[in-house]
Design a binder for these strands. Structure first.
Lengths: 206, 206
DNA sequence: GTCCGTATACATGTATACAAAATCAGAGGC
DNA sequence: GCCTCTGATTTTGTATACATGTATACGGAC
C-alpha cells in the first residue's frame, strides 16, 4: 500500500461518485482503511490536493473538492482555452496510427462509460485526442482540470445518465479529426464543453 | 517553523537564483537548516512540488525544477493562453481604484526588481494586472506557471539584467489598460511574453 | 581496461508516540 | 429559545526511531 496506490484508489472512489464533493477524508480513518500509518496517507492526500480534486488546509480535515457555480464557470473556461488549443494542434499532426488509436480510445471509453465509469472513459478519450499535439505539460494540466470537473459531475446521477449524449458528441469530434478539420474540431469541442458546463450548473442549482 | 514558512523560504531562495535549477533538496539537510524534523520538510517539499517549482519522485531526492527548451515553449504558450485571456477580461472591469492599484503595483515592482528581486516584483505586478478579471482560479494557475518560468530565468544573470527592458514593457501594458484598450493590452502582453521566452531560450542554449 | 556484482553508506519511507490545534457537547447566562 | 464560554474528545502536526530503497565505491572476472 504505497501512497501512490492510496491516492489512485481514493481518486477512483471520488471520480466514481462514491465519495461526493464535501466528503471529509480523515487521516485516521483512511490509515485504518488501508492498513498503514497516517504518514503515507498524508502523502496520498497531498498528491490529491496537488491534482486539485480535494481541498486541504493545515489543521483541518481534507474534503473532496466542492465547487460553486462560479468556480465551475472558471474551470470549464480554462478547459476551453487549453483543450481547444490542444486539439487545434493535434489534428494537423495526426498520423494514421493516431487516427486508429483515437478510434480505439473512443470505443474503449464508450465501454467504460456504460460500466458506470464515465470519468475514466472521458479521461482516456481526451488523452488520446490531444496526444498528437505533443504538449505533455499542457495535456497534463488539462487532465487535472477535467478531473476536477468530473468530480462534480459524478455526484449527479442525472448527469451521468447523459453519457449517451456526450458519447455522441465525442463521435462528432472524432469525425472532424478524421476529416482533418481543426476548426470544426475546435468548434465541436467548444460546444461539447459548453453543454457539459451548462448541464452541470443547472444540476447544481438544486 | 511551519511547513508553509519553510516552503515560502525555499521558494524565495529558488526564485532569487540562490538555488538554481537542478539543485538537490535533501530532506535531512533541510531539516537541519530549519531546525525541525523531516516531516514538516516533506510537507513543504510537497507544496513546492504542487506549485510546480521542484521535481519530486518517490525514493529520490527532490530537485529544483529544470526545464528544457521544449518545456519552456509549452510553459510560455500556456501563459499566453491564460494571461491574455485574463487581461482581456480585466481591462473592461477596471475601476478607478484598480487603475491606481495597478500604478502602485508597477512602482513597487520596479523597486523590487532593482533590489535583485525580479521574480517577486514580476509576480506582484501581474497579480494586480489580472485581479480585476475576478478569476481567482485562473489567476492562481497563471501565477504557478509564471513562477516556474521565473525559476529558469533567475538562474541566468544576463536575463535578470534585462529587468529595465521588461519594466518598460510593463509600463506599455499599463498604458493600454489605462486607455481602456483590451486588444492592445493583449497584443503588448503577448509580445512581452514572447520576448521573455525568446531571451530565455537563447540563454539556455549555452 | 572494461564490465559486472556486491557491500557499504546515505537518503528516503514508514510506524509509533506525543503535542497542539480544532471541533463538538453541554452548562451557564442573556 | 439562542448565544457563549468552557472542558472533553477528536483530529491533525511533529519528533524520534527504525525499515526500506537507492546510489556509490570497491573488488573481481572477463
Amino acid at each position: 500500500m504505497t501512497p501512490q496506490t492510496i491516492a489512485d484508489t481514493l481518486q477512483a472512489d471520488i471520480l466514481s461518485g462514491a465519495l461526493p464533493p464535501g466528503t471529509p477524508l480523515g487521516q485516521t480513518d483512511l490509515a485504518a482503511r488501508f492498513g498503514v500509518s497516517r504518514i503515507p496517507v498524508r502523502d496520498a492526500l497531498a498528491q490529491l490536493a496537488a491534482g486539485g480534486i480535494i481541498t486541504a488546509s493545515p489543521n483541518r480535515t481534507a474534503t473532496v473538492l466542492k465547487l460553486d457555480t462560479a468556480e465551475v464557470e472558471e474551470m470549464f473556461h480554462m478547459r476551453m482555452l487549453l483543450e481547444c488549443d490542444l486539439i487545434g494542434r493535434a489534428v494537423p499532426n495526426m498520423t494514421p496510427s493516431d487516427h486508429s488509436a483515437l478510434d480505439l480510445a473512443l470505443e474503449r471509453s464508450s465501454l467504460e462509460a456504460r460500466q458506470d465509469n464515465w470519468a475514466s472513459g472521458d479521461q482516456m478519450f481526451h488523452a488520446a485526442l490531444y496526444a498528437p499535439a505533443k504538449r505533455p505539460l499542457q495535456s497534463a494540466m488539462a487532465d487535472d482540470l477535467r478531473r476536477a470537473c468530473s468530480v462534480q459531475v459524478a455526484s449527479y446521477d442525472q448527469l451521468v445518465e447523459k453519457a449517451e449524449r456526450w458519447l455522441t458528441e465525442h463521435e462528432g469530434i472524432v469525425a472532424a479529426c478524421h476529416a482533418g478539420d481543426p476548426k470544426e474540431a475546435q468548434r465541436l469541442l467548444r460546444r461539447h464543453l459548453r453543454a457539459a458546463r451548462n448541464h452541470l450548473q443547472k444540476a447544481m442549482k438544486d
